[in-house]
Design a protein around this nucleic acid. Sequence first.
DNA 1: TAGCCTAGAGAACGAACGTTCTCAATGCAA
DNA 2: TTGCATTGAGAACGTTCGTTCTCTAGGCTA
Lengths: 187, 187
Amino acid sequence: MNTVSSPREVATAAADRLYYSRGIQAVSMDELRAETGLSLKKLYALFPSKEAIVLAVLHSRHEQWSAGLERAAATATTPRERVLSIYDYLLECFVSDDYRGCGFVNAFGELGATVPAVAEAARAQKVGFQGYVGKLVAAAGAPAELAPMLVLLAEGAQTTAAICGTPDAARSARAAAEALLDGARAA
Amino acid sequence: MNTVSSPREVATAAADRLYYSRGIQAVSMDELRAETGLSLKKLYALFPSKEAIVLAVLHSRHEQWSAGLERAAATATTPRERVLSIYDYLLECFVSDDYRGCGFVNAFGELGATVPAVAEAARAQKVGFQGYVGKLVAAAGAPAELAPMLVLLAEGAQTTAAICGTPDAARSARAAAEALLDGARAA
DNA sequence: TAGCCTAGAGAACGAACGTTCTCAATGCAA
DNA sequence: TTGCATTGAGAACGTTCGTTCTCTAGGCTA
């Protein structure tokens, strides 16, 4: 682990913060320069264009999301709890008062139709999450059809928590997931 | 019912089409002028600003969403089917090959942090939908805690269908809703 | 026909953006 | 010290956008 971040990491982290909180097109390169302390010349030496910065942000966000999920899963002791840890991690995210929903959904809505690489990055993150949930569901011995349902609960919770401004959706999602797991076991 | 649309309706409908398919900031006033055939002067006589057009679009989209839900519910014969008609309506939406997710979620992600009125319009639509689902759930004699869960399924299905490009999410959401309704009945 | 009001088409304006360029300051090799 | 390559700060450029303004054509009244 490197405690000193490279300029590229500094720029990516700052861009992530700015883009996520205000929207991508609302943040100019000049603002990113001011936030990072890097010169424009340096920024354009690190990245060929703003689009490349956006893609780097989405890439790092994908990694943080996966790491957060696995960190939450690591605290669980049973396969069933590992499935439910997804919603514990969501709750963690939601309680932040500047939570603004899934960054991939936001980027897709803003740029997905204009910048194909953004749409593809969002798709990749969703497919990755679906695969992760599928693995947890299989490990818990639950039927495979349950996985896409649990995914929908998590996706819906993110937009609902963001727009309504409350973390309640995480609890509803968790309770629904429990009910679905129990129902599948009973059947 | 008026078969001849007012210029305001023409502008709102065209803006809705353009904004939804490409993103709001990606569509200039000049493109809206070209699409509608109205002059810029006329557009600015109808609306004081682009922001006002965006809000009019969201308002009309809210009405279309509610009308679509009620139209789907009208074909159902039992209270339970009326609940599930939500996901039939979603499937209707998803099969359109230019489906791009919930317009309110997209607008919120793009402009919610910059334009408070957009965030409020999105919140109002979500709250309205939650109330609608709550009424259907109550009419079906199901426990009230089910409503927010069914909402999450619908919200998640919209983003998933948009980003992954398939309408499958509607079927998963419907199946999950059925399982939750059945589980609640059994309890 | 004469005068006036409306409205359409698009030029114009000021601001903001992404990107590039200038230029001076710096560090380093010999 | 001299010369050169690198770099930082920010001015500059070309484009695009939202919005306003100009100018002209056309229709209505008398």
